[in-house]
Design a protein around this nucleic acid. Structure first.
Lengths: 158, 158
DNA sequence: CCTCCTTTGACCATTCCTGACCTTGATTCT
DNA sequence: AGAATCAAGGTCAGGAATGGTCAAAGGAGG
């Protein structure tokens, strides 16, 4: 697993565990309470939500302000994970940023379509290959992401 | 002077010893601290990492910037049987023709380093990807061949 | 000398965390 | 009902902590 060192990482892990323990169903929580539990400012929760629970990473976050306010966090429901994976890959355009790549990997990892080891190797390979070219890294990255992920999927016999 | 020991060599040895002492498991370190320990500029660490801890040499390096940033260095287990395969791959230049690619695949197939199914999948993916780009197919192909073969080899050392 | 590897430093990019200030919804007071 | 107040959550910009890049200078060996 990734390094669980920063506060944000801990909060992320906490939320994911909550969801897991709830059979993957959406959970509801109070921003203020959570912030209190981790001894941080409330906006830190928003930071975690936007950086780790974005739609691109497969999460849906709803909330309401005012008295009795709440934050609900759930996973995007997908019929067939492999279908979803192919969709994800086919939606990769001719260029892709590092951040976009991370989102895809995070999502596939989340759905256990790839292992963290595979994700690491993919990152490593792409890092080396993009370093090799001066310009057009986003182009090379797109090509490699598609190729490597497609390879993984096809190998699994899809 | 038998300069068997540049600063880079010492840093390399230090990191390798760390990994050894950690039972071969990945280690995590701080670039700034390490640079400090060796009284050099931080970028020297990057130099050592890129020149001595590349994937072809069997290492995988991950890092994160910002607060709580780190550099993680681990080994990817690779069977010795595949030593020459790595040589083959690292000899792939910045461009390679379809014929050269076929030769490489044939050799790897011959030595049973990859299966015919894997070879087929690789061919298919590379065909698709090179078709996407108008020019510079040989460039893209080289990148993909390296990436996919590297991936296959590291997958096996699991 | 020439070339390749090493070292350095200036400048850049990313990630995290906080606090001041804003918006929205519910409840209570007149 | 309307106003005031209370109780959430949201935004945004900034500071601090890391690591990354790149090109030029330095050195050792052939």
């Amino acid at each position: 697993m990734g390094s669980v060192s920063t506060l944000a990482d801990h909060i992320e892990a906490y939320i994911k565990r909550m969801i897991r323990e709830n059979q993957g169903r959406a959970i509801e929580l109070s921003r203020a309470q959570l912030a209190d539990a981790f001894a941080c400012v409330p906006s830190q929760i928003n930071y975690v939500l936007t950086t780790r629970f974005s739609l691109e990473r497969g999460y849906i976050v709803e909330s309401r302000r005012g008295g009795g306010g709440y934050i609900r966090i759930g996973r995007v429901q997908v019929e067939d994970v492999h279908e979803d994976a192919f969709d994800l890959i086919s939606q990769v355009g001719s260029q892709i940023s590092e951040k976009e790549m991370e989102n895809i990997l995070a999502r596939l990892l989340d759905h256990q379509i790839i292992t963290s080891r595979q994700a690491r190797i993919i990152r490593g390979i792409i890092q080396q290959e993009t370093a090799r070219v001066g310009q057009g890294k986003a182009l090379v990255r797109a090509s490699l992401v598609r190729a490597l992920l497609l390879f993984v999927l096809q190998q699994q016999g899809n």
